[in-house]
Design a binder for these strands. Structure first.
Length: 567
RNA sequence: GCGCCAGUAGCUCAGCUGGAUAGAGCAUCGGAUUUCUAAUCCGGCGGUCGAGGGUUCAAGUCCUUCCUGGCGCGCCA
């Protein structure tokens, strides 16, 4: 719903004439498709029912009887709509003063003060490389975390590592047989991968290896020292590499807590479920029947007594509630796990946890290749590290071509290259499947991260050239051209965009809005000169430039993208 | 078979929870720089909103049937 000072005033005007409650009027208010038609519009359809008159007749009558009092300067009826034009000077003053006062906090609020949100994102498997299809969870989760932080929530980011499972037994066998005992310090995930591949090759010739692997995993579960040590090494090697990439992406976690961590808690979790009378044995497995809720059963224990993913997720949820006492927990996990989370949340609810309904699965579409599916086994993946270095390299080349004088070329290339990747991933609604395409991922023209960064850099450049301090003591009456007003409107909307992004867990709302701001700015930039000869005018436009720069910077920060001052 | 998600310009996507003439970018064609960074801007081309039916003053948006694609449906995560 739209709401601001102007809408409130319009609502009170309309309330006097029509008797409709102000709250309802505010709810109905719209923005016309074209600013030339007015700044805000009131559709008369609702009134037409009550008054039994055609909506355009009502609009026409109201337009004649409603007084144009400040901040409304004109009221015009267009068909069934009553359109309001507001005082551009007042509008400019309100928006610019607010942005200027709030600086880095423009867009922030305290609606979430005192509330805690736990976000589970990225969560890759140990002993495998991070690849492009790992990007989405990490970036969407990071952006959502920033969105909630901006709204005043206390946020905890958790990386729920996949560090448990029989594959570690296999890896141990391979490591013991073919790995190098003393060189593990220099081991990389690639080495672990090779061992994993070698295990499967050898296991085909020697089936005994599988049994050996199971033995090792059992040892690990039982807490055997050697197994624990080996497992810890694999984990260290993986985390070393993961951290490097998270650093490149500017992603931070408050906790790296893998599945293994909850392994000791599942016993109690299962017991609690049993005590509640939720469980029953079916086909030798322990299940929670979810038939009444139209879902397949949730398995807690396999017939060999081992627990499953769902069991560990339930245990993890209990632990997190106890530890963080969250008001909301968000899982940023692919949409293929929709049913899984529906089941887990339902079981939590059935266990009597009212907070079970505060758990949200923020799902997102799969990432695929044009022809083949991405698969670690077949090697048909693009490693994240390769994608990022390629993007940086590409940015570097463009800098060399367009701005060879630039200082800190490498830093800027990093920010722009990675900014392009992040923005591209966050610009379509998360729901959509993504077909990975090198050209698209590395595109720097049009509606891209570099476009937003470039616009920001140009504004910084103007401010540098201006050299003087920015002030709000300007003649706001000079800021009423169409291009200026349209731009100001997009600045004014920024805080409400963040609120909507939180409501829908949708970072793309922010990236799309930033594109709109940039496109409005660039239209302004190309029609009006900021550093005009007229000093008054220059001072006023500089304020507009600074406010726009601020909005772009704040928006990019939420998305997890750097805003270089030059590029 | 059942369930969930998607289908809008040649391609990639918006469309503010039912409102005014369906909008951008890429690609393509044509323009703009002695002046604040041309990673920019302006214009042309491009549409049966997957198809049919329904709901109502009004449907890309809601209900329904079908088509196409993706994902999921007990011992993986």
């Amino acid at each position: 719903m739209l709401t601001n000072y102007f809408i409130t005033r319009i609502a009170s005007l309309l309330n006097e004439k029509t008797g409709l409650p102000e709250a309802e009027i505010e709810k109905l208010m719209e923005v016309p498709p074209d600013f030339k038609m007015g700044d805000y519009a009131f559709p008369c359809y609702t009134l037409s029912k009550a008054l039994k008159k055609a909506p355009n007749v009502i609009a026409s009558e109201l337009s004649k009887t409603l007084p144009s009092v400040s901040p409304v300067v004109e009221i015009r009826d267009i068909g069934p709509y009553l359109n309001f034009f507001i005082d551009r000077t007042i509008f400019a003053e309100m928006v610019l003063k607010k942005v200027c006062e709030e600086h880095d906090c423009y867009g922030s609020s305290s609606t979430g003060a005192g509330k805690r949100v736990v976000i589970d994102y990225s969560s890759p498997n140990i002993a495998k490389h991070l690849a492009v299809h790992h990007l989405r969870s990490a970036l969407i989760g990071n952006a959502i975390l920033h969105v909630y932080k901006t709204l005043g929530y206390t946020c905890t980011g958790i990386n729920h590592l996949g560090d448990w499972g029989t594959q570690f037994g296999q890896l141990m066998v391979a490591y013991k047989r073919w790995g190098s005992e003393d060189a593990y310090q220099s081991y990389t995930v690639t080495d672990l991968n090779n061992l994993y591949v070698k295990f499967h090759q050898e296991a085909e010739k020697n089936p005994l290896l599988e049994g050996e692997a199971r033995e090792w995993f059992k040892k690990l579960e039982a807490g055997d020292q050697e197994a624990r040590d080996l497992w810890q090494r694999f984990k260290d090697i993986s985390l070393r590499e993961f951290q490097k990439i998270y650093e490149m992406l500017g992603i931070h976690f408050d906790a790296f807590v893998g599945e293994s961590f909850y392994n000791t808690m599942v016993v109690d979790t299962v017991m609690r479920a049993k005590e509640k009378g939720l469980t029953r044995v079916s086909e030798e497995a322990l299940i929670v029947d979810l038939e009444p809720y139209g879902m397949p059963p949730c398995l807690l224990r396999k017939k060999d007594d081992a627990t499953l993913y769902a069991t560990r997720d339930i245990a993890a949820a209990e632990y997190r509630q106890k530890t963080y006492n969250f008001d909301k927990m968000i899982y940023v996990v692919g949409s293929e796990q929709k049913l899984h989370f529906k089941q887990v949340f339902k079981v939590l609810e059935l266990m009597g946890y009212e907070w079970g309904s505060h758990c949200v699965h923020v799902d997102f579409g799969l990432m695929k290749f044009k022809d083949a599916k991405m698969s670690t086994r077949k090697g048909t993946v693009v490693l994240l590290e390769d994608l990022l270095s390629e993007a940086i390299e590409r940015a570097k080349q463009i800098i060399e071509a367009k701005n060879p004088q630039l200082e800190n070329k490498d830093t800027v290339a990093r920010h722009v290259g990675i900014g392009a990747i992040i923005f591209a991933d966050l610009s379509a609604k998360r729901n959509k499947d993504v077909v990975f395409d090198w050209n698209e991922a590395l595109n720097f023209d049009g509606e891209t991260g570099p476009y937003v960064q470039y616009t920001h850099a140009r504004l910084c450049s103007i401010l540098r050239k201006y050299g003087k301090a920015v002030t709000t003591r300007v003649d706001f009456g000079l800021l009423k051209e169409d291009e200026t007003t349209v731009l100001l409107k997009s600045l004014e909307q920024f805080p409400s965009v963040i609120v909507r992004a939180a409501e829908f867990y949708e970072p793309s709302l922010i990236s799309n809005h930033l594109i709109a701001v940039c496109s409005n700015l660039n239209r302004f930039y190309n029609t009006h000169r900021v550093l005009a000869d007229d000093e008054e005018l220059a001072r006023a436009r500089i304020l507009l430039v600074d406010a726009t720069r601020q909005v772009l910077k704040n928006g990019l920060k939420i998305l997890g993208i750097n805003a270089p001052g030059q590029m």
